[in-house]
Amino acid sequence: MIKLEGVTKVYGGFTAVDDVSFECQPGRVTGFLGPNGAGKSTAMRIMVGLTPATRGRATIGGHDYHDLPNPGRHVGVLLDASAQHAGRTGREILSLAARTMGLPASRVDEMLALVGLQPSEAKRRLRNYSLGMKQRLGLAHALLGDPEVLILDEPANGLDPAGIRWMRDLLKGYADRGGTVLLSSHLLNEVELIADEMILIGRGRIVAQGNKKQLLAGAGTQATLVTALDNDAFTTVLKERGLVAVPMGEGLRVEAPAVEVGRAAAETGTVLVDLRAAEGGLEDLFLTLTADTQREAPAGAPVPPAVPTTQGGLQ
């Protein structure tokens, strides 16, 4: 439904989006995941024609966004919930959009009710909205025209946990009815819970895509958390079998599937008190795949010492 083919955006010498191709299927929620500045927002702006692509093509339902008549009736877009006139009330913002799309005023009330904005809140000006309220309003704005496709940039940003769950149910329901959803996030947990498909992007390039299972299988890194009565002895046992174990919490973390660790224990008669697959595999994968694009040095890396300038003046 949403299709990108070799989309590239170059700013001067900086490539913000680098040869990105993917397709979003109807009836699914596709998560667009990457660290800050990975090119998610730029790619989304290219999809809706706000940013011209340097190369490549983005189509929605087979059309260039520019060629969609009354696009609000086909594609719901939320790129930045704060990018609205701060002096307008929530209701006025929706009313303007409804009028543009040719929708009855009653649709505004329906959407306000759907996203849980009270009539008194809808009367407030946007500058008095919390980020969570702005996101709800932005979602109402995107859903106003009953579109077939939703393109949402960081929609969960600023929502409280209850709000995130509400949005998840809303988008799942929308996709179950045949809608196509593309949502971006820099938070893995958010996307992991909502998305059927995931596209991981780092430094403008797609580093991996697929559903959770495919991603984990593709990464080939399966870790196990295990606790034995005698961890030190078990570490030696594992080492003899070529498995690396590092202490973690009360037990060990082994870079191997749980079944191998269990077999090692059974064959050596080791008593285990805990054995399970390490969670957060996806997070590890995400961090590994986007490692070179992270702004942060790994925790524990030494902070480079400040070098005092001995010579005065500007360097």
Binding site: G62, H63, D67
Partner: peptide, 22 residues
């Protein structure tokens, strides 16, 4: 979005452009 069967293209024949006066 009246149908639950996945469609991969958007049918725009039923939608008119936003009139200029609007």
């Amino acid at each position: 979005m009246t149908t639950a069967t996945p469609v991969r293209s958007i049918d725009t024949s039923g939608t008119a452009r936003v009139p200029f006066l609007r």
